[in-house]
Amino acid sequence: MQNRRLLALPLVVGAAALALTGCATSPASSDASGDGTVRVVASTNVYGSLVKTIGGDHVSVTSILDDPSQDPHSFESSAQTQLAVSKADLLIENGGGYDDFMTTLAKSADTKADTINVVKLSGLDEGGDAEFNEHVFYSYPTMVKLVADVADRLGSLDSADKGTFAANAKSLTTKLQDLESQTAAAKQSDQGEKVAYTEPVPGYLFDAMGLDNVTPEAFSEAIEEGDDVPPAALNDTLKLFSDRTVKLLAYNEQTSSPETEQVKKAADKAGIPVVGVTETLPKGEDYVSWQQANIDAVTAALAK
């Protein structure tokens, strides 16, 4: 979504400029230490986790958004972030209007680093009039493509460790393919089950499991854009629960509004399971464990 409220960037321009003037050789943090590792900056820790799994000790990763308690729809850059981008060897952005701050940071830092745009890599955005779901980090086939691309780029930046990157990528790909197998199996038993969400965060997971999202588009789009929800759309959404039309509600735990809280209460009142979903990794989780937990939670909710 091009106008998505997620991650608008009020750059701290003055502070960033000061940090970049006279401090060009100073590390932004231990993640950009100039210790010979490949320096990667990812827009979120979802992508940072994948890079770290592939690169191990041969990469230093800065994930700009990495706080699970943070509302990812509100982001402010810092001089430290700007400096990390300026020193990066590789940048990873989601794209699709999700994290436009990465483009702003890269231009401000005048970086020459290659950038992986995951939405473009995915091939999922076919254009047209349909609203595009930019949460491609819930698409396991896309993550398989990303792993291969990251391994190739790291190998080009650090040819001495190319074999290590390839081996780690192969192991990670096997785990991602296992997630795909699980969703395919779930599709055999749960195809067509009706579900709802507050925002289309888990949309690709629902698609892979064959689930039918029946959330009024006017509701989820308004929530995602931070706009007022049309009263008719709110009423139609609440009716999904009072009529017990859906088997579960996926609730974005990192953002809330009076309308999403109202919908959550309606689901609770109707005894319909609420599955929490996030846009960044919870503490202590890597990408695979995070998505495994998502699959398990949705499967358990459908079984009730």
Rank of each mutant, 00 (worst) to 15 (best):
M1C: 10
R4M: 14
L7N: 11
L7E: 09
A8N: 14
L9V: 12
V12C: 08
A16P: 09
A19Q: 15
T21G: 13
T21E: 13
T21A: 13
T25I: 02
S30T: 14
S30P: 07
S33R: 11
T37A: 15
V41H: 01
S43C: 08
S43V: 02
T44Q: 10
N45D: 15
Y47G: 06
G48T: 05
G48M: 07
L50S: 00
V51T: 08
K52T: 14
T53G: 09
I54G: 09
V59L: 08
S60A: 15
V61S: 02
T62E: 05
I64G: 00
I64D: 00
L65K: 07
D67M: 11
P68H: 03
F75N: 00
A79P: 10
Q80D: 12
T81K: 11
Q82Y: 14
L83S: 15
A84F: 06
A84S: 13
K87P: 08
A88T: 07
D89Q: 10
L90H: 06
I92H: 00
E93P: 00
E93S: 13
G95C: 02
G95T: 00
D99C: 05
D100S: 13
T103M: 01
T103C: 01
T104M: 01
A109M: 13
I116S: 04
N117C: 05
V119C: 00
K120R: 12
L124E: 02
E131T: 15
E131S: 12
F137H: 05
S139A: 14
L146E: 02
V147M: 02
V147F: 03
V147H: 08
V147Q: 08
V147W: 02
V147C: 04
A148I: 13
A151Q: 06
R153G: 03
L154V: 07
S156F: 12
L157I: 15
A160M: 07
A160S: 13
D161S: 15
A166S: 13
T173D: 14
Q177V: 06
D178Y: 10
T183V: 15
A184E: 11
A184R: 12
A186T: 00
Q188H: 05
S189P: 05
E193S: 12
V195G: 05
Y197C: 04
T198V: 04
E199P: 08
E199I: 03
E199C: 01
P200A: 06
P202R: 02
Y204R: 06
L211V: 01
L211A: 02
N213S: 12
P216V: 03
P216M: 01
E217M: 07
S220T: 13
S220A: 12
S220H: 11
D228I: 06
N235W: 10
D236G: 01
L238C: 05
L238A: 04
F241M: 04
D243P: 09
D243K: 14
R244N: 13
V246C: 04
L249I: 01
E253V: 14
E253N: 14
Q254P: 04
E259T: 11
T260I: 05
Q262V: 08
K264F: 06
K265W: 11
A267F: 02
D268T: 09
G271A: 10
G271Y: 05
P273G: 03
V274W: 00
T280N: 07
G284R: 03
V288L: 06
Q291S: 09
Q292I: 03
Q292T: 15
A293C: 07
T299Q: 08
A301K: 09
A301C: 11
A303K: 15
A303F: 04
